[in-house]
């Protein structure tokens, strides 16, 4: 009996240790505990420990920057799921899309979410830019972060555009043909730029692979790095505050 009781006590204390190893400060019942939690938690450390109520008023930020970032996360997660089933070659791509739509468990739902989240992200990023302009939040000392934001808008558009080709249907290749045709009008560099984008003179196998690689690795990586700088600068330059 004694041995069992000792074992239970020991187990209980190990479990307590496990809990406190992950959740160090218990429930945030007081400001002090809440502040300590925010300081020592990796996910929460992006936020300042204390904020003024006027900075985070929803009628000021409209949550647009946060929603853009959240949509990026949604797109990463749904995108990973799609990558399990999608082969970027003209032989397989379209059939894989049909399979995703009709065969793969939740394939249609995940594909739809990826598509609509991408459209939503283009819209929220635009609106975020409009909000920042209209509140004059780009003014000193945030000039540099406005520039980073402009680049992030471009990355968002390019991500959306490269993704547009991947279903390999009539909508995809002709939209990308029209889009890449715009590039060839640049003086001197134009035709070369188009050749570089397409990996040839027309949209084909090489184009699909290039767009795929940029869509799933190149652009998200650049975008992620710019986001890190963007968020870091928000903290360093200070919140722009309410109007």
């Amino acid at each position: 009996m004694k041995v069992i009781r000792a074992a239970v006590d020991e187990m209980w204390s190990v479990m307590g240790q496990m809990t406190s190893a992950v959740f160090r400060h218990g429930l945030p019942m007081t400001d002090k505990i809440a502040a300590r939690t925010a300081l020592t938690n990796f996910v929460l450390h992006i936020h300042p420990v204390r904020v003024r109520r006027s900075w985070i008023r929803m009628s000021y930020t409209l949550c647009l920057g946060g929603l853009s970032f959240f949509l990026f996360i949604v797109l990463t997660v749904t995108g990973l799921y799609l990558m399990f089933y999608y082969v970027p070659s003209t032989q397989h791509a379209y059939q894989d899309m049909r399979d995703l739509q009709f065969v793969v468990t939740f394939g249609g739902l995940i594909r739809n979410m990826h598509r609509w989240a991408a459209h939503a992200m283009v819209i929220t990023v635009w609106l975020h830019m409009a909000r920042v302009f209209l509140t004059g939040a780009y003014k000193k000392p945030r000039e540099f972060n406005w520039g980073i934001g402009t680049l992030l808008l471009l990355i968002t558009l390019l991500l959306s555009f490269t993704g547009y080709l991947l279903p390999w249907d009539q909508l995809s290749i002709w939209a990308v043909t029209v889009g890449t045709n715009m590039a060839k009008y640049a003086p001197i560099a134009g035709p070369y730029t188009r050749y570089l984008m397409l990996g040839g003179t027309a949209v084909g196998d090489a184009t699909l692979l290039r767009f795929y690689v940029m869509h799933v690795v190149g652009l998200p990586l650049v975008g992620f790095l710019l986001m890190v700088v963007h968020f870091w600068r928000v903290r360093k330059d200070g919140f722009s505050g309410g109007l």
Binding site: P28, A34, N41
Partner: peptide, 8 residues
Amino acid sequence: DEMIVSFP
């Protein structure tokens, strides 16, 4: 302006 703790 009122200062609040961001978490939660």
